[in-house]
Design a protein around this nucleic acid. Sequence first.
DNA 1: TCAGGCCTTGCGTAAAACGCTATATGAGAG
DNA 2: CTCTCATATAGCGTTTTACGCAAGGCCTGA
Lengths: 302, 302
Amino acid sequence: MDTRSLAVFISVADTLSFSRSSEQLHMSVSAVSRTIQRLEEELGQALLVRDNRSVRLTGAGQEFREYARRSVAEWQQMRRQLGTDKELAGEVSLYCSVTATYSVLAPILEAFRTTHPAVEIMMHTGDQADGISRVLSGQDDIAVSGRPLRLPQRLEFLPLLESPLCLWMPAADCAVRQLALSARVDSPEFDWSTLPFIVPERGITKDILDAWLRDSGIRPRVYAQVAGHEAIVAMVGLGLGVGIAPELVVRASGLGASVQPMTVADSLPPLAIGLASLRRRLQNPLVKSLWDVAGQTYRAPV
Amino acid sequence: MDTRSLAVFISVADTLSFSRSSEQLHMSVSAVSRTIQRLEEELGQALLVRDNRSVRLTGAGQEFREYARRSVAEWQQMRRQLGTDKELAGEVSLYCSVTATYSVLAPILEAFRTTHPAVEIMMHTGDQADGISRVLSGQDDIAVSGRPLRLPQRLEFLPLLESPLCLWMPAADCAVRQLALSARVDSPEFDWSTLPFIVPERGITKDILDAWLRDSGIRPRVYAQVAGHEAIVAMVGLGLGVGIAPELVVRASGLGASVQPMTVADSLPPLAIGLASLRRRLQNPLVKSLWDVAGQTYRAPV
DNA sequence: TCAGGCCTTGCGTAAAACGCTATATGAGAG
DNA sequence: CTCTCATATAGCGTTTTACGCAAGGCCTGA
């Protein structure tokens, strides 16, 4: 018996519906079904009567529901008690891009510092594209990252904000800018093959860009593959080509004057930026507390 | 969190030793170690202080120990309550050989019938050799079987009694008997290659016999491979050869007069007979109750 | 009678747990 | 002082468990 099973049962007992519970619990209907089956097998008693149309509690189910509520409550109380018993202290390791450090993270860390002064943040910065893999490999507890197109089950993602994803061209007059302006970029006839592209080497934005290019039928001329949005923006600013980056990065980079957004026919989807962490690591109260503070910091204003 | 982890922690907190607990809990030391680590990670608190020589509880550990005891107790009480609330009813499926039906099972079922009259036994009989695989494949809840030489982790085995494993020869005068008596069977010079052997087709006794033959350096002349001890005894009784069977089967077969045990130099190891079931299935109280009754039935007299 | 909602089941895959073995560290014997 | 023994942890491959998807069965209401 584990608390997870109890939570599933409580949910089903409340909603009296496997399908509604499955949504509530973010799991498939079959997983809910089997969890209840396991419980019933372990107890040797039917807890729920399902007659293909409705679900209702058996006598045993009602008793067990009381128990389950109590048990989960006691468990959570114990967790809190042990947590508050001793002030949370320790290390949380964080991975993010340079830009994210002050644009996304600053308000979170400011709030966190006041609520958990004894927790040390070990921050690693680098290409945002590596965040997910660093979390998956256990190198860092939490990463600031865009939402992956397909996120592994063991990964939890907490969306914090969105930033439009744009194509950028140099603001200063130069050959690339001339090319980019030579025709209506958003017209189907635009000849992309002459325009040098600066694309991300890897990571979420690369995936999004690839998908977008494919869908739009564009075969770009790749001038450079670069690690890190900041470097892309810098290269665009220098007139080396056009490139992709979230608006947030451009604004934060201080290079906002040297690049300009291009308007294109099929606009790129906005990038969902947030925290990523292994479910497993989130069981650690230290990690969880930073996670929660981040969620509150960005949810409260909205 | 699950009750298993709590039980592990309670044990370690009691013994103050990972290794002693690992024996007590029938699991490896590393599994114990990791279970504690998982708990500590989930709670974000050290529960035990290990200094490579001794183990002692932290403050949080002492608190948590109280909680763990309470929680496990409440869980077990709930199980019992639901169990007694409604009388146990349902089906338990059982596999055994014909002989086992009345020699091993009869006293168990007699006791079980009186304590759990509402539980129906669905019994399947057949070659004892198939019991383990039928349990492993989920066809039956419990099988009466000899203890396998190597038992899979997911299988639980409850030894009930032992029966000497013997070689048997025909009691009536016949060619085979002459051969078997022609020389001291237990002398190293005995020529096994002339003596027709009736061996089990598969199963535990086949494994034991194979190992014994190999160790004794005997290369038998196999006359027939037969499914089921009963058939082996019958064939031996008809003078077709010598064969292996537990004494129990011979006594129960009613053919005790038509076969005689052979004394051999390296005696065969006695066969441990008992119940086999998947750990998983034993979580079902119905199955568990039959299991327990069997254990008591055979332990009480001893 | 058909469509649609609802739970269960089979199957392939992903995650978790375990055991074995190696490693590190300290205690006690020679 | 070294060697051995005992104890907990870490790496690695394997087993076991849990999950999601898709198919299936069953009932209800149109």
